[in-house]
Amino acid sequence: MNPHRRHPFIRIAALVVYFFLYAPIVMLVLYSFNASRTNILFEGFIPSVGPLQMEGSLVTQSPCGAFHWFCELAKNQEVGVAARNTLTIALTSTFVSAIIGTMAALAMQRYNFRIKPFAQLSLYIPIVIPEIVMGIGVLTLFSQLFAIVNNSLGLAGDARLTLGIGTVIVSHIAFCVPFVTLVVQARLQGFDKSYEEAAMDLGANELVTFWRVTFPMILPGVLSGALLAFTLSLDDFVITFFATGPGATTLPIYVYGLLRRIITPQVNALSTIWIGLVLVAVVLLQRLQAREAK
């Protein structure tokens, strides 16, 4: 019996679902090269390179040629700031949550301690409650806390504590940690304790054993946990929406703001870049997994 044999119905259904998944994405990318400013129909690529020329709603010539909207995007300073904020937040919260999440995973998998059931519960909650609940929770916490601190210390002007990148990072860590912990814990489940015993048997103390043996062996798990945290943070809209303040706009927040006001092919250009980066990341990930599988 060929295990790879699939019913024609399955093949057709799979094709339809893939079409459903990709048609909007392909359309987004295609329209980022659209000569039409109104973005209703695809009116072809911008044909020539040169000083900007327009005919009605069509761009007929641009210094960047077909990449007109990408150049427009590059001139947009708000996007630059938002991109930098997004990356700062994602990298910082990934770094912190990878470290403390790995520690927590070790504790949950290896040790028995009194508060373990409570810790387990608190790690499950963010997974099973809607993000908005946590979002308004942190908003309430920070606004009440900052009001108390600002008033009692008499802080004024720029010295006042406000929502911003700091509050976003702290909140992102909170929702990333449970996922890192789960991923690393899954790796630790298959971890044979005799590797560590062997290291200690050969003269390594607990710290040396961790750094020379345990850590290298769970590193793939830690990395995939960190990768998950990174994508969660990069992608997050809801919690950022509530935890952020003036000057701390991230890309998703920026795009959301645009959508409510105006649609321009610049957004398509931004989407195309994002999708391109995702493609690169996915291919890299696949290479990494293939290498690990060897």
């Binding site: 590797y195 062997a198 200690m200 048997d201 390594a204 043996v213 290298p216």
Partner: peptide
Amino acid sequence: TPPFQRNVNTVFQSYALFQH
């Protein structure tokens, strides 16, 4: 006394060779 302070060494059933 922890294992790393004992002058004995072990050959494990699973070998426990460090894969990395």
